[in-house]
Design a protein around this nucleic acid. Structure first.
Lengths: 231, 231
DNA sequence: TACATTTACTGATATGAATCAGTTATTTTC
DNA sequence: GAAAATAACTGATTCATATCAGTAAATGTA
């Protein structure tokens, strides 16, 4: 088999966060003491790039984006679905501030875990540390793929990627009510809002998708897949 | 202070790899047994994306690029200078193949460390594990910055970034003999070879750099910095 | 030294996608 | 339930940068 890697702009890791399974009963109890669950409304900032990081987060319920921002532009690094960690890069001793911002796409519940305690777990439980390493490196693979996609595919391919990702990984259905605005979609696929709108229109005209307001239905997976592949 | 983060297309981490300092004398001895140093000529492949990963690498001498490739295009993720690890993502249990290729820019010497032994070190020495986590997360920060830069800056800014990176971090001098071809520079800054050539010419005409064949000299750092910032 | 090959460079042209300037539709708010 | 605000959409235009098609220079080789 020839390995012609396919990169997608997909933003969601399929890696299942298993790190808490590695904890002892005692550690799990302590974890509960050292954490608190907070609710965020759609659009609210869960963590802010540059501010001091005192906790690692775990998405219990909801959906959020992770973005880099230079004051002018923003880049969506990934999406955090239920059951994934957020802000793991803060466990690096050299960075005591959040390296990115996270904003809730929909109403969400997030467990905030005390950072020092999290670091302590890494130091004392090597299975836990190993799993953290797995998560970090899976995350790199995801972001590298997205990096490739956003720099080398053209817009139609990137948009097809995002639609496939939303359908397959986020909503896990061929039809879904998309809470994201066209602007959000544009940010996700790294292009302008107007271009997204025009391209979605084309996809609809070619019967690849159906669209009524926020309701999406994917009609032709294989054609979208093909568009994703040719770039 | 307002935090207007500046992202650069710089490809080199300033993180100093300290993980081997964390080893005991006995572990250091074992490490020598479990590793072998190989010489690579300029242009040679040090590791190949998709092939089975049986070792982690350490750049003892030389310079190499780390690239993603889909058979058509390639993306330089980062550059590995002397004193840095390469192929660390292989320690993830889910990926037993190299996630990227690495090619020597110049003649290089690379220490190949047995992967199972490396994993064993992670499991048994928590300071070592912690340092590995630091390296992984520093690496993410670097690549995220580059991701932002290549997707949001335009060509002049990206090229300025690369020139500054080469001068400040790789060669650590305002003049250097660049072993890389124009094509390499194009790949690094994510644009076509012709565009690189035209823009270098402009930089020279505006007296930002001097250029005679492979010999480069940076004349105006602050102007290049400014070009990098405006994008 | 001559020849072949690769690399560096130049100009003309094509094009993908952003930007600008609106209108229409849908939410939100009072 | 009307007014205001936001989001969705459309068309015209501009622009950055890739691509194409070459020539010139440098490097490798016989």
């Amino acid at each position: 088999m020839v390995n012609n890697e396919q990169y997608t702009g997909c933003t969601i890791s399929t890696h299942i966060c298993q790190c808490f399974d590695k904890l002892t009963e005692k550690e799990k109890e302590l974890l509960e003491d050292k954490s608190v669950t907070i609710k965020y409304k759609k659009g609210e900032t869960i963590c802010k790039q540059g501010s001091f990081a005192s906790h690692v987060m775990y998405m219990e319920k909801g959906l959020a984006k992770v973005i880099l921002n230079d004051g002018k532009n923003s880049l969506v690094l990934k999406i955090i679905p239920e059951g994934q960690l957020l802000g793991l890069s803060s466990i690096n001793d050299e960075h005591n501030t959040f390296q990115y911002s996270s904003i809730a796409y929909i109403d969400s519940e997030v467990k905030l875990i005390n950072l020092d305690f999290f670091k302590q777990l890494v130091a004392q439980n090597s299975d836990f540390a190993k799993e953290v390493i797995n998560i970090l490196s899976s995350n790199s693979v995801l972001i590298n793929g997205r990096f490739f996609c956003l720099t080398h595919k053209q817009s139609y391919g990137r948009l097809a990627d995002i639609i496939l990702c939303l359908s397959n990984r986020v909503f896990k259905s061929d039809q879904f009510e998309l809470q994201l605005s066209r602007k959000d979609l544009a940010e996700l696929s790294g292009m302008s809002e107007e271009t997204v709108i025009r391209m979605l229109k084309n996809f609809r005209e070619e019967r690849l998708i159906e669209m009524k307001g926020k309701n999406f239905k994917v009609l032709d997976y294989s054609k979208l897949q093909q568009i994703s592949e040719v770039g």
